[in-house]
Design a protein around this nucleic acid. Structure first.
Lengths: 114, 114
DNA sequence: TCTACAGTTCGCCACATGGTGAACCGATCC
DNA sequence: GGATCGGTTCACCATGTGGCGAACTGTAGA
């Protein structure tokens, strides 16, 4: 799926920043308005909003504006997608190294060690 | 740990590109020289080498030059680190939503549905 | 030795990213 | 109604990213 690949692009890119990962961690404890989320960080609102929009277009969070306050909450589905990709790759790796170990054990050639 | 955070930065950034993810997937089936890795992609060697160096500085792969050919292989440790972070976050989320479900069940307020 | 081949380095370019400050908009509160 | 507060938009800037082609290096093979 091309879509899935693009989704992984945006999700991993969103996660590749400590500020955004901190926002995720914070939102895991419950939804919060933008101002409150931005408080711990030493940057202006505009910069922080860019981080939020990266998170939102990646699908990791959803936001809703009611009155003048925008509330953010997490959407764990994309988090799971990223985790799935990683665990899939690691499973392949695990299987391959297991087979490799078996192979080495079965032949065990005295390899040169320079 | 600050180091761990930087490691996550570079690992997630490395994974946020379809070319680099494809290289990872390819390397899961066994190590390979640069030329062979670059073959499937429609870009020049210099561009491809940049991808490789991103992967290497992230610690996701290791390379070794013997003679004139540089061989690349995977290092699954960082892959596991990324997976760990994600599963940790998801576990927190899971725990929180479980508690939330219990809370909602115990109170069950008839929320407005617009 | 000469040639071809695998990487590497270099300079360049277009565009994305991450930040700033200032001005602005719309909802709330006194 | 006017001040304030939460967001938003705008113009701008420095830096990083991802690509190119051309020139270079060093090893292998004929």
């Amino acid at each position: 799926m091309v879509n899935r690949s693009i989704a992984l692009d945006t999700v991993f890119h969103a996660l590749a920043d400590p500020t955004r990962r901190a926002v995720i961690s914070r939102l895991l404890m419950g939804s919060a308005p933008v101002k409150q989320l931005a408080e711990p960080f030493e940057m202006g609102l505009p910069a922080f909003m860019k981080h939020l929009s990266v998170l939102e277009t990646s699908g990791l969070i959803r936001t809703e504006k009611r009155g003048r306050v925008r509330t953010c909450r997490i959407d764990a589905e994309r988090l799971a997608a990223a985790e799935d990709w990683l665990s899939e790759q690691r499973a392949l790796w695990q299987g391959r190294t297991d087979r490799l170990a078996a192979f080495v054990e079965s032949r065990n050639p005295p390899e040169e060690r320079p």
